[in-house]
């Protein structure tokens, strides 16, 4: 099939970007979307042009690196699918496809379709962990965890941190991402000891990073490649409310920790 691509090109964070048009000829149904872009890039390089910069790594839908808006939809609109797993059999000969980077203030564009998602790492650094050092942990079977709880934790933990939820949200909210980690760890007994300070600290950094708030439109869930449920946002709100009510905000260490 032959396609027309309108691709966002932007030299760097400071430059103005624009959509440019390219022709993708002889695209095969078995190609992934990124392989189609690889072919376009090979032609661009051969002709002395600049290839389109886009992020990808594992190309099997798990690392969360690939990230682009296709016709205005994060990852292209195939349910539960990252763009690296989106294949060209879902497009038709003659289609025009608009390709843009994630759009959110907290994810500035680095170049073309590549954005800086460092804010997600900073949120995890604020509290998305269980504070245990290596060694000295109890036997793994010492503390039984019900299958339902463990499954729920796994449902939340499946988040790949790609940022599609933010890109899809009209408020550029990161609530689905943050709530997935909060819910994963709050669902397990190992994570409960610090559940309050975790949610307070993570939400604080989320707000500081420039993400908007959730107005429950559900657009995040619709594009999430791991189909993380909106329920987790409800769980996070509950965790947050409890933490506020217990007034156990981020405690200042007085030493001796």
């Amino acid at each position: 099939m032959n396609l027309t691509l309108k691709v966002w090109r932007q030299k760097d964070a400071r430059s103005q970007g624009r959509l440019e048009t390219y022709q993708a000829a002889n695209v095969l149904a078995d190609m992934s979307f990124l392989e189609m872009l690889d072919v376009v890039n090979e032609e661009l390089i051969a002709k002395g042009g600049e290839p389109i910069a886009f992020d990808s790594d594992c190309r099997e839908g798990i690392c969360g690196t690939c990230s682009m808006m296709i016709n205005g939809i994060a990852h292209g609109g195939l349910r539960g699918t990252t763009v690296c797993q989106l294949h060209m059999r879902h497009f038709h000969d003659g289609d025009t496809i608009v390709i843009e980077p994630w759009r959110a203030r907290a994810f500035p564009v680095i170049k073309d379709l590549v954005t800086d998602r460092g804010a997600f790492d900073r949120i995890i650094q604020a509290g998305g962990f269980v504070s245990v050092n290596t060694g000295g942990t109890p036997d793994a079977n010492a503390l039984p965890v019900g299958k339902t709880e463990a499954d729920r934790a796994m449902d939340a933990a499946a988040c790949i941190g790609c940022g599609a939820c933010v890109a899809a949200c009209k408020n550029a909210s990161a609530m689905l991402f943050v709530s997935a980690k909060v819910s994963h760890l709050a669902s397990l007994p190992q994570g409960r000891a610090e559940r309050e300070r975790r949610v307070l600290n993570m939400v604080r950094v989320m707000d500081e990073s420039g993400f908007g708030n959730c107005t429950v439109t559900g657009s995040c869930e619709a594009v999430c490649p791991k189909e993380i449920s909106l329920d987790f946002i409800a769980q996070m709100n509950r965790e947050y409310g409890q933490a506020i009510l217990k007034n156990s905000g981020p405690r200042q260490s007085k030493g001796g920790d």
Binding site: G135, P138, A140, P144, G146, K147, A150, L185, L188
Partner: peptide, 22 residues
């Protein structure tokens, strides 16, 4: 054997049986 203990303590959601064990 220590690895599994460590990962469980970190909150790695390993598959479990209905009895709650791994």
């Amino acid at each position: 054997v220590n690895i599994i203990d460590q990962c469980v303590a970190q909150g790695v959601p390993f598959a479990r049986e209905y009895g709650g064990l791994l």
